[in-house]
C-alpha cells in the first residue's frame, strides 16, 4: 500500500542524501529500515511522509502520489521531548490532531481514552508530558498516532531516547498494537536487533547517499517474545546477515567477535 520507487533526494546545497531507493510496505506488515548512523534515514522518512520535497522518484500511498502528509498516515518521531506539546495535557496532545478527522467531540473523547489505555496510560490523561518519564512520553506519542487511526504508521527511531528496559517494553507495545489494529508500520532504526525482532521485512540502507543494499524477509514466528525470539538460531542468522550488510560491503568479512560487539555498541550509543 505504500510504494517507494526510485526515490532521490539532493539538497539545494548539492549534498546527495538518497539515491534510487525503492521498496514497499504491504498491508498489515511491519517493515524496518536499518542503516548506519548518518545514512539519511530520517531524510528518507521525511520524504516519504510528505514533510520534505523529493528531488525525483515516486512515493505513493494506495496508488496516490504523496506530496503532502497524507490523512491516512501518522508519525511517531524520535525525540518525544520535542514532539509533544508541553503546554497541553496528555489528553489534549492526543486529541489535537483528531479534530480534522473525527468531527464528533464525544467520538474523539472515546478515541483518546481507547488509545491511552491501549498504550497503558489509563488515568494519565490529565497529566502534562513533562510530569512523565521518557518512556511514558513516547507512549503518549504512540497513543496520539494510533488514535489518528492511520493505515500506515511511520516511526523515526522511536526508541532511541529511552533506556534499554523501556525500549524492550515499547518494542513489545508496538507489536501488540500492530497486531490489534492491523496497521502497517514503517519503522526506522539503527539497532539491528530491534529491526530483526520487530520486522516482517528489513530494508537495509547504505551510508550516504542512501541506497537499498538488500531487503530481507524475516520469517520468525509471531507473536514474538524478547527472550524466546531472540534466542532462536534463525534470529542470530538474520542478525548477522543484516549486520554484515550494514557494516559495508567493502569491509573484510572476517570480523571477529570483538569488533562485532564494538560496532554494535557504537550504533547503540549514537
Amino acid at each position: 500500500m505504500l510504494t517507494v520507487k526510485n526515490l532521490n533526494k539532493v539538497y539545494s546545497t548539492g549534498v546527495e542524501a538518497i539515491r534510487d531507493v525503492s521498496f514497499d510496505v504491504r498491508e498489515n506488515e511491519i517493515v524496518c529500515l536499518v542503516g548506519p548512523s548518518g545514512a539519511g534515514k530520517t531524510t528518507l522518512l521525511r520524504c516519504l511522509s510528505g514533510l520534505l520535497d523529493r528531488s525525483g522518484g515516486l512515493v505513493a500511498l494506495d496508488g496516490q502520489a504523496v506530496t503532502e502528509p497524507p490523512l491516512r498516515m501518522a508519525a511517531v518521531f524520535q525525540d518525544y521531548s520535542r514532539s509533544l506539546m508541553p503546554w497541553y495535557t496528555v489528553e489534549r496532545n492526543v486529541a489535537l490532531p483528531l479534530k480534522n478527522k473525527f468531527p464528533s467531540p464525544a467520538d474523539r473523547r472515546d478515541r483518546v481514552n481507547a488509545a491511552l489505555s491501549a498504550v497503558g496510560l489509563d488515568g494519565f490523561g490529565s497529566s502534562y508530558p513533562w510530569q512523565l518519564s521518557g518512556g511514558m512520553q513516547q507512549r503518549v506519542a504512540i497513543a496520539r498516532a494510533i488514535a489518528y487511526e492511520p493505515e500506515v504508521l511511520v516511526m523515526d527511531e522511536p526508541f532511541a531516547s529511552v533506556d534499554a528496559q523501556t525500549r524492550a517494553d515499547l518494542e513489545d507495545l508496538v507489536l501488540s498494537v500492530q497486531a490489534k489494529t492491523g496497521t502497517s508500520v514503517l519503522l526506522v532504526t539503527h539497532d539491528i536487533d530491534e529491526a530483526v525482532y520487530l520486522a516482517d521485512r528489513v530494508v537495509i540502507l547504505s551510508s550516504r547517499p542512501s541506497r537499498v543494499l538488500d531487503i530481507v524477509d524475516v520469517d520468525l514466528p509471531r507473536p514474538r517474545d524478547q527472550i524466546e525470539t531472540k534466542s532462536l538460531p534463525r534470529f542470530a542468522e538474520y542478525r548477522s546477515h543484516v549486520l554484515r550488510l550494514v557494516r559495508g560491503l567493502g569491509e573484510a568479512q572476517d570480523f571477529s567477535a570483538a569488533t562485532l560487539i564494538h560496532n554494535e555498541e557504537k550504533t547503540r550509543s549514537v
Partner: peptide, 17 residues
Amino acid sequence: ATAREGGRTQPVKSKNK
C-alpha cells in the same frame, strides 16, 4: 484498504525534478 496492493501505481513525474 483491504483490496489494495503495493506497487499498483503509475509513475508520477516529480514537480521538483
